[in-house]
Amino acid sequence: MNIRAVREGETEVLVPVHLEDVSFPPSQAPVFYNPAMELNRDISVAATAAFVKELSARRNMALSDITYVDALSASGIRGLRIANETGIHATLNDWSEDAYQLIRQNIGHLGLEDRVEATRRNANVLLHENRYNIVDIDPFGTPAPFLAAAARSAVHLLEVTATDTAPLCGAHLHSGIRKYSAVPFNNEYHSEMGVRILLGKITRELSVNDRAMSPLLSHATRHYVRTYLKIDKGAKRTDSMLEQLGYIAHCPSCGSRQAFSGIALFIPKECTRCSSERILAGPLWLGSLHQPEFCNMVLNEIENRNLGTKEQARKLIELCRDELDVPMFYDQHIICKRIGVSPSEIEGFLTALRDRGFAASRTHFSGTSFKTDADIGKIEDILFSLR
C-alpha cells in the first residue's frame, strides 16, 4: 500500500496516497481517511479533552488511566489524534485487515505503543466484552446496529456519529422507521428531527440496562449528526431520562407544532390553530441538546489548540451554546414564503421577538433558522409588522 503523511491538529498520520484529496460524504468515502470530516475530528478532540480533564479531576484519575475506544476506526485517525492530543489510553478497532495493519503502522509512526492498542474484532463483540470510560461510534452510515453494545460498554461518555441523514430526517421514511424504531418526517426542521430521533433511539438502548444519558453537545453538520452524551446509571435517573421522550405534532397547513411528552399517549390529530390534520413524529428526544457550561469548556479547548478548522469549530460551538432550549426550530424564509412577506434581517427579527417578551435565538442548523417560545401566530404577526 502506497502511503504518505498528512497532519491534522498536532498529529501526523499515514494515509493511502490515492485517498489524499477525496472529499465526499462518509457513506461513500474510502475506507481509510476522509479529509472532509476534519471539522468533526477537531471538535471530537476538543470535546473529549474537555470531558477527560473534568473526569480526571473529579475521579482523581491520571489521564493515561482513562480508556477510550474507537470501535470502527478505519485509518484510526480520530482515535490516534485523541490519544496523542489528550493523553488518554485508546483502543482502535476495525474488522478490515488493511485498516488494522495501517492502524498498527500509525501507532508505531507516532510512538504511541504504550497508550494505543490496535484490535481486529467484531465491534459489537468487543463492546459487549469490555467497558471503556469513553466509547466512540463513527460508522459509515447508520450507528443503529452498534448502539446496544455501545450503550452497555460506555461508562462515562458516549460519542456517536450518524451519516445516514436521509433515514434520520424522514427523506427515506421506512428506512428510518426500521433503523430507529421511530417515525421521522421531512420538513423545514428535518436536521433537528434527525438529531432528536437519534437521541431517542440511544435513550431507549441505554434504558434497557438502567443507564441514563445527558447530552453535552449535539450538532447536525452537512451530511452527519454528532452527539456527546454523559452517561449515568440507576433506575431513577433512567426513569427521569425516559420522561423526556415524546412526539412532535406538526401541521403542514399553518406550520404550527406542539410537543407531547410520553411514550403511549393520545394526541389529537386536529390542529388547534387551523383544524387541519397534523402529522406525528416520534418517539424522539424532547430534552436539551447541549449543556452551555460544557460548550464553554469545548470552546476553551478549541482556542488553545492548533486546529485546522478552528474558526468554523468555534462558530459552530458558540451557536450550539446559545441556542434556546426548545424543540423544534423555525425557518424564517419558509414562514415568510407561506404568508407572503419578504424576510427581514435575522438579527432584527430576533430583536423584535425579544422586545415583545419572547425568548429567541439563532441556531446552528442553518442561517435562516431560529428558536423561540412564541407560537406561530405571534411569529407571523411580528413578521407582518416588519414589512
Rank of each mutant, 00 (worst) to 15 (best):
N2E: 14
V6W: 09
G9F: 03
E10F: 01
E10C: 07
L14D: 05
P16Q: 01
H18M: 04
V22A: 02
V22S: 01
S23T: 01
P26V: 15
Q28E: 11
A29P: 01
P30S: 00
V31L: 14
F32A: 11
Y33M: 07
N34T: 05
L39C: 10
S44Y: 13
A49S: 15
A50E: 07
F51K: 08
R59C: 06
N60H: 11
L63A: 07
A71R: 04
L72T: 14
I77L: 12
R81G: 05
A83P: 12
I88F: 12
H89R: 15
T91Q: 08
A99M: 08
R104G: 08
N106K: 12
L112G: 01
D114R: 11
D114T: 09
A118N: 02
T119N: 04
N122G: 07
G141W: 02
T142H: 00
P145W: 11
P145V: 15
A149Q: 10
H156P: 01
L157R: 09
L157P: 01
L157I: 07
L158W: 00
T161N: 12
A162W: 11
T165P: 11
P167K: 00
R178S: 10
Y180M: 15
N187I: 01
E188I: 06
Y189M: 12
Y189V: 02
H190T: 11
G194A: 10
R196P: 05
R196G: 04
L198A: 05
E205A: 14
V208W: 05
V208T: 13
A212G: 09
L216K: 04
Y224I: 01
T227P: 02
Y228C: 15
Y228I: 15
D232Q: 13
G234A: 03
K236W: 05
E243W: 01
H250D: 07
S253T: 14
C254G: 09
S256T: 08
Q258I: 13
F260H: 15
G262D: 10
K269N: 09
C271G: 10
I279H: 03
L280C: 13
G282P: 12
G287Y: 04
L289V: 02
L289M: 10
F294K: 11
C295E: 08
L299E: 03
E303D: 13
N304D: 08
R305G: 02
G308A: 02
T309V: 05
E311L: 12
I317G: 02
L319D: 13
C320Q: 06
C320A: 13
E323K: 05
P327K: 11
K337Q: 14
R338H: 10
V341P: 00
S342V: 14
S344Y: 03
A352H: 09
G357L: 04
S361I: 07
S366Q: 11
G367N: 14
T368P: 00
T368Y: 15
K378E: 14
K378L: 04
I379N: 06
E380V: 12
E380I: 12
I382D: 13
